[in-house]
Design a protein around this nucleic acid. Structure first.
Lengths: 225, 225
DNA sequence: ACTCATAAAGTCATCTGATGACTTTATGAG
DNA sequence: CTCATAAAGTCATCAGATGACTTTATGAGT
């Protein structure tokens, strides 16, 4: 089932060991097999084991004591900072953000009030069209509009996750991709608000998808080029 | 000046590199010196540099591309614990999870392979119908099926977010709501796989939505009651 | 000149072996 | 039985080599 994901040995080692930790194979405080043994167990070199162990140490699962051994510090998964998600490719993160955009727009369409619609229109007007000037400011105003759509959905979980991705994505896009990504124009944005105003979830869904498709396609071209 | 704190070289390397990243010595997207150069700069071996880099990768600061180099992914302090999302209501979390189910099913339908479909059918058969017995085991098998759909989408960001919510939701459901939530039957699950097999994203989308609607509705009734 | 397949160079991924530092355990004299 | 000390165990670090993958340079053919 992991055919799709090409991963490296160290990551596999990390997951294998983490799995054993979470699976309570070793209790808290217990000593793990030494590096040579782990190396043999996982069929990777000692250096690879060390890389895996160091990551798990940095995540609070393990603790190493020179001359003594490696010990389990916590078998708890809570508070895991979604490191994998942050490491996912820009494309994956953007795709995930799009998924949230779509679903949140549906919810917003269903739960909208005249006030939210007015607020969205206001933010859209404020955003304006990109005039070639201050790019960072424009991206910020654009993001504010999109966040407002999510916020209007009323789903706090989605809001938080959206923030999580947008920060990372905005960074990367601004710094590395620059102006090669087509910025959907005012009309495309207005279509979303219109759909939300009618309260038609399917229409809102479609509007967001039309909106995002060219951006995703552009992203693909860049990655493949 | 660090005479008092006995630390190891790899941790020092981590802090040195992280400092340079946060200090904007390299911009987002920019390539770091190669491993040999970093090794020379920090006066540590290449292996130690690799351990440091891998930790920073796991924390979202860096990204490595085999054959190309190591790049800065984010200059902001990563590792936010998403506490808000975890504190969101069960309903919101479940709704967010549904959003991921829907969008991932769309992607899986587009990117499916015969092997994927076969694996999904296998997991579904293994899951079986709930016979009133071991509930925890059944929930786990059911979750395994859903996770497989997400995994087959190939989107790592979604996979991670899904895990994030699943864990939390499973906990809450098991602890507070018990067996009052309707478990969609085998046919509803099979419909999803069928849609994926045809490669029709809209069909997959609809199948998942039909699947989730009654569960969400039940959740609403409980919350309101 | 231009295109494009291919060679060459650059870089990360991984393995192997060795040495040093530190901790734990075994040993043996007193 | 105590305790200094040797021995063994384990992590920390280094060095060198090979493989895999990506990027760049090259050159023949048009």
């Amino acid at each position: 089932m992991r055919a799709l994901s090409k991963t490296n040995l160290a990551d596999e080692a990390i997951e294998a060991i983490r799995g054993d930790i979470l699976g309570k194979r070793w209790a808290v405080g217990e000593k793990l097999p030494n590096e040579a043994s782990l190396s043999a167990m996982l069929s990777v070199s000692r250096g690879t084991v060390r890389e895996a162990v160091r990551v798990l140490v940095s995540q609070g699962y393990l603790e190493t004591r020179q001359g003594s051994g490696t010990y389990v510090r916590s078998t708890r998964d809570a508070g895991r900072p979604l490191t994998m998600a942050r490491r996912a490719s820009l494309r994956d993160q953007f795709e995930a953000r799009c998924a949230l955009d779509v679903e949140a727009a549906r919810l917003t369409a269903i739960r909208k009030t005249p006030e939210t619609v007015a607020e969205l229109r206001r933010l859209l007007a404020e955003r304006g069209n990109y005039d070639g000037g201050n790019q960072a400011g424009f991206i910020e105003r654009d993001l504010a509009f999109h966040k407002a759509v999510i916020a209007a959905s009323g789903n706090r979980a989605m809001i938080e996750i959206y923030d999580f991705f947008s920060a990372s994505i905005a960074d990367t896009i601004a710094a590395t991709l620059g102006k090669d990504i087509p910025e959907p124009d005012m009309q495309a944005h207005a279509n979303i608000v219109d759909a939300i105003e009618t309260g038609d979830a399917d229409k809102a869904d479609a509007a967001v998808r039309r909106f995002m498709a060219p951006v995703l396609a552009a992203l693909d071209r860049m990655i493949l080029s």
